[in-house]
């Protein structure tokens, strides 16, 4: 029965180890004081490719099939009440720009279509994008920004789109209150964007921390959503130049931080109860997508199947060589 500890393996003596740890600690202190981080982030990047043809606001425009979608994981919002959500596990995002207009296509799975919020327990599907107002500055808090770091939020709501569509088409006339006197429309009278006919489908908002969210004074963000096959696809579009200092200016070659939020009306999501992402990077590329997407558009994902299959075969072959060949046949161990 072995109960004794093995003798200390040959290696560094305790004195040398102490010196080594002193060196490690000193190096760490220097790195900390100088704020030099040897590590580099491997966070995800969404690339907004330049495209020759405008995708407009069509979520099903052919160009979107040729651009890589990035899957961004979501989780529930737990910082402030009403907390919750997290029922949508991820959104798939692709981006493009044409004629100095940035387009973001946000897609997520939702088994139920909820585009009404007229009753007390009726909630709508919605999606939002958050971008820090200042490019290149330190990333503000993901929850509505902070005092020294404003954020610009674009929120699209299914009920708003439906309502506006129907107002435009004259549908659901029975639900329209006949009086036009503002006295009977207090929210509209107070300037509530949600109650204002003719307002934009996407709310353009700015915030500098909790409780500061308000409509942007200038600037319009366009948007269009489409629901089919249990998928919501929503396109947001905004020109590059910033309308004011609370909104970002996009330029080719620059990187931005961007976060996403999704509300599932069927699950009772509203206000702070939503599925949210952390910040990921958005790169506005100066490369034209068409220069390398032709093969992709023709090959679909078959190219991936070939690549992954080849990789799997290569790995299995390598593993067989390493694992199955008996040790005694391996030359380095024969010599041992």
């Amino acid at each position: 029965m072995l109960t004794r500890r093995p003798p200390r393996a040959p290696g560094w003596l305790p004195a040398r180890r102490t010196l080594f740890f002193a060196f490690v600690l000193l190096t760490a202190l220097i790195l900390r004081v100088t704020d030099v981080n040897p590590a580099v982030a491997q966070s995800q990047s969404i690339v907004a490719w330049r495209v020759d043809e405008s995708p407009d606001l069509d979520p099903d425009a052919p160009i979107w099939d040729e651009i890589q979608r990035m899957s961004v994981p979501l989780t529930s919002q737990q910082v402030t009440v009403p907390a919750g959500g997290g029922t949508v596990p991820s959104v798939r995002v692709s981006a493009a720009h044409h004629d100095r207009i940035l387009y973001l296509n946000v897609e997520w799975t939702d088994n139920t279509l909820n585009e009404a919020s007229g009753a007390p327990e009726e909630f709508t599907d919605a999606a939002a994008i958050q971008i820090p107002a200042e490019h290149g500055s330190s990333v503000p808090a993901v929850c509505m920004g902070q005092a020294d770091g404003a954020v610009n939020i674009w929120q699209w709501r299914a009920d708003r789109q439906k309502g506006l569509d129907q107002l435009g088409k004259g549908a659901d006339f029975v639900d329209v209150y006949p009086s036009t006197d503002e006295l009977f429309f207090p929210a509209q009278s107070a300037g509530n964007a949600l109650a204002t006919p003719g307002a934009d489908v996407v709310q353009n908002l700015v915030a500098s921390g909790f409780g500061t969210l308000e409509p942007a004074s200038v600037g319009v963000v366009a948007g269009q959503g489409r629901f089919s096959d249990s998928q919501w696809r929503v396109v947001f579009a905004r020109p590059f130049p910033a309308p004011d200092e609370f909104q970002p200016t996009f330029e080719e070659g620059l990187e931005f931080d961007v976060a996403f939020a999704v509300w599932d009306g069927h699950r009772g999501d509203r206000d702070g109860q939503k599925s949210v992402s952390s910040f990921v990077r958005l790169k506005v590329s100066d490369t034209t997508a068409g220069s390398f997407t032709a093969a992709g558009s023709e090959g679909g994902s078959s190219g991936w199947l070939i690549l992954l299959s080849a990789g799997l075969v290569a790995f299995v072959a390598y593993a067989v060589v390493v694992l199955v060949i008996p040790k005694r046949e391996r030359p380095e161990e024969e010599s041992a």
């Binding site: 990047s45 991820s90 679909g300 994902s301």
Partner: peptide
């Protein structure tokens, strides 16, 4: 692989990359 296929549009060379790697 998920991270690699999500950056710099690598997937565009071979077509849109699968998005189910993480689950």
């Amino acid at each position: 692989l998920h991270a690699a296929t999500q950056v710099n549009g690598f997937g565009s060379i071979l077509g849109p990359a699968p998005t189910g790697f993480l689950p």
